[in-house]
Nucleic acid binder design. Structure first.
Lengths: 191, 191
DNA sequence: CGGAATCGTTAACAAACGCTAAGAAGTTCA
DNA sequence: TGAACTTCTTAGCGTTTGTTAACGATTCCG
């Protein structure tokens, strides 16, 4: 089974005809280690399934600091709703990455043509909303150290281990220096 | 025009028949100053349009501290996606509040019965996702003081002014004491 | 109306964080 | 393989925040 079809069918069932309507719009694409999937400042109007590798979505603060807000790993959809509409964030390949790309505009067409895709779109948005809501709540409720411990205890641990910790730090809302101190503190206290 | 119909029609057009299917499920409800719309710990399986007044959605930390994550004002839908599924947060009336309530289960029925409601559900989830994503990004990118200034500069200023600042503080991810200091600092520096 | 509860501010102290810088360890890639 | 680059850690310093507590002012509600 095609990996994208597998992904979609975790939300809705697809007939062969419905799947074919999307499959014809897919474009394979490879990104080198630090190549950009979308340029900074330009609207990111494409969606991609990450076939292999990893990407991160980041903002650039006025002082030049990069703040990573999302990671994308194998067999997950890489998309930025806010970017598809307002176009501010930017994406970067972290490891050498293989993608399957299709325009967000194509998905909107499918919303009109097939009710099943409209439902997929709803479930996808709801799924991402749940994740972002939980993430936001964690930022409001927990201390930086608690957030790091939560991350360690989650299922994302293994894939996060592949990522430079400076990126994980901004994902947690702290500086790399602070994350390093938290790790040192935890290592001391547990011994 | 019915206020809920007006709200929905900002996303999708509704025929009289489509509107009637939802209207029959509406239940008016009034809440006193600090009455709960949903009990803490129990799943909040209802959605409500706030007709008048204001509500807040909050979590209770292990130490007993209340952390407010959302506010709901007139002519806005009060719902918690995470609660409709997992049922952890709780809602509280802030001011005496008039609501129009309907079960989330009813909305799910309408998703099956009318394509226009399925589309509304998608657009509603996307709309909330955009808001939550922006909120999360602000927490990652900006300092507490910058977040407060952003809030002051936003369209929410006037309605936020009705709310006790202790709640606004946790909405910004800081303590009431800290918000008070930020305000004092800003007042001094601008003079 | 008047007591009770809530709310905002301020102070003092300790803890944590951001920033800058420097050095060590590891990785990349020509 | 080796030089350049990236990453992680540690240190010192100043700032901000959290915490606790106290004091007025306001608001609520019997």
């Amino acid at each position: 089974m095609h990996p994208l079809r597998t992904y979609i069918q975790r939300f809705v069932p697809l007939t062969d005809a419905e799947w074919a309507a999307l499959e014809t719009s897919l474009q394979p694409r490879k990104l080198a280690r630090k190549a950009h999937f979308a340029r900074i400042g330009e609207p990111a109007s494409d969606i991609a399934l990450v076939v292999s590798g990893a990407c991160r979505l980041y903002y650039v603060r006025p002082d030049g600091e990069e703040i990573t807000t999302y990671f994308f790993f194998e067999n997950h959809l890489m998309a930025s709703y806010s970017s598809c509409l307002s176009g501010q964030p930017s994406r970067l390949a972290l490891e050498p990455t293989e993608l399957l790309v299709f325009p967000y505009a194509r998905l909107r067409q499918l919303y009109d043509e097939f009710p099943v895709y409209e439902r997929f779109g709803r479930l996808l948005a709801e799924y991402h909303l749940l994740g972002t809501d939980e993430r936001m709540t964690e930022l409001l409720l927990l201390s930086p150290e608690q957030r790091y411990q939560t991350l360690l205890a989650s299922t994302k641990t293994k894939i996060m281990a592949r990522i430079p910790q400076r990126y994980v730090a901004s994902y947690l809302g702290i500086t790399p220096v602070s994350l390093s101190r938290i790790r040192a503190r935890m290592a001391t206290e547990s011994s």
